[in-house]
C-alpha cells in the first residue's frame, strides 16, 4: 500500500521501541525516497517523536531494521548516525541557550557530503533571514519561532542527506508557521529529503508528497497526500480530535 520508491534513502522495518516495560512502537515501517518530503501524521502521544528518536538511536530499547543510505543503522550510536548524514531536529528544539547563534551553527557543522545540498551560515541566512540579524545573540535570548529556525539551520549545517523534522509547526504563531512552510518548500526545492512529523494535517498537506498515519504506536495508513485527503475514514479514525 505504501507508494514505495525504488531509491529509498531511509527504510524502517518492524521497528519496536520500549520505555521500561511500556511498549511504545509496534512494527512501525516507513520509507523515504531521495528528494521526497514524507509526513508522519498522528495525534499527540501517537508515537511520532519516539519513532524519530528510535531511528536516531536515542531510544535504548529499540528493535527492528533501519537502513539509511545503504547502511544498517539499527544498532548505531546517535553520533554515528548523524555522521552518515541523517539530520535530526527535535520537537523541543533544544537550542544551546548558552551559545550564540553562530556557535549553535558551528556545533552542527560537518564536512560537505556528496549527494546532499551544501550549507553555509550565509546560505542558511537567506533561507531564514531573521537569523542573519542575530548572529551574536545567545540562543537563550531568542523567541520560540527564532529558536525553531535556528534548530533547523543547525541541523542543516551537517549537510545531511535527509532530515527528521519533529513537529516543525508546534507552538508557533500562524505567521511563523507560514514562514516555516515556505522554508520547507524551499528546502525541498534544493533537493533536501525531509521526513517530518505533524499533528496539523493542513500544514503537512502544504509541504509533503506522501504520508504515514500513526496511532498508538502503529502505522495505520501509508499513501500519497492526495490519497489521504480522499480517505475520510482514516482521517476520522486516527486524526480528528
Amino acid at each position: 500500500m505504501t507508494g514505495s520508491t525504488s531509491d529509498a534513502i531511509l527504510t524502517v522495518e518492524a521497528l519496536n521501541a520500549y520505555y521500561g516495560r511500556a511498549h511504545i512502537l509496534s512494527d512501525v515501517a516507513l520509507q523515504a525516497g531521495r528528494g521526497e518530503v514524507v509526513a508522519l501524521i498522528g495525534r499527540n502521544g501517537a508515537g511520532k517523536s519516539t519513532t524519530f528518536k528510535s531511528i536516531m538511536g536515542l531510544v535504548d530499547d529499540r528493535r527492528g531494521r533501519i537502513t539509511f543510505a545503504g547502511n544498517d543503522i539499527s544498532r548505531s550510536a546517535p553520533h554515528e548516525i548523524a555522521r552518515l548524514g541523517l539530520g535530526y531536529v527535535p520537537e523541543d528544539r533544544r537550542i544551546f541557550t548558552d551559545l550564540t547563534v553562530m556557535e549553535n551553527l558551528e556545533v552542527g557543522r560537518q564536512r560537505p557530503r556528496e549527494g546532499a545540498p551544501e550549507w553555509t551560515p550565509e546560505r542558511l541566512f537567506t533561507l531564514f533571514p531573521n537569523l542573519a540579524e542575530m548572529r551574536g545573540r545567545l540562543g537563550g535570548g531568542m523567541s520560540g519561532g527564532e529558536q525553531q529556525m535556528l534548530t533547523i539551520a543547525r541541523t542543516l549545517m551537517g549537510n545531511p542527506l535527509a532530515i527528521l523534522l519533529d513537529e516543525p509547526s508546534e507552538g508557533l504563531a500562524p505567521r511563523i508557521v507560514e514562514m516555516m512552510a515556505h522554508a520547507i518548500i524551499g528546502l525541498k526545492a534544493e533537493g533536501q529529503t525531509i521526513i517530518l512529523s505533524e499533528q496539523n494535517l493542513h500544514f503537512a498537506g502544504l509541504v509533503s508528497d506522501r504520508a504515514h498515519v500513526i496511532e498508538k504506536g502503529r502505522i495505520r495508513f501509508g499513501g500519497t497526500m492526495r490519497e489521504l485527503a480522499a480517505d475520510e475514514a482514516v482521517r476520522r479514525a486516527y486524526l480528528t480530535l
Binding site: H79, A82, P90, F96, L99, E103, E106, V107
Partner: peptide, 24 residues
C-alpha cells in the same frame, strides 16, 4: 576554538550534541 564550542554545547545538552554528530 571549535573544541571549546563543542565542550560548552555538551555541557548543556549531551544528547543533542551527539545527535548532531559529535562523538562525546
Amino acid at each position: 576554538t571549535r573544541w571549546g564550542t563543542l565542550v560548552r554545547a555538551a555541557t548543556q545538552d549531551r544528547e543533542m550534541t551527539a545527535a548532531l554528530g559529535i562523538n562525546q
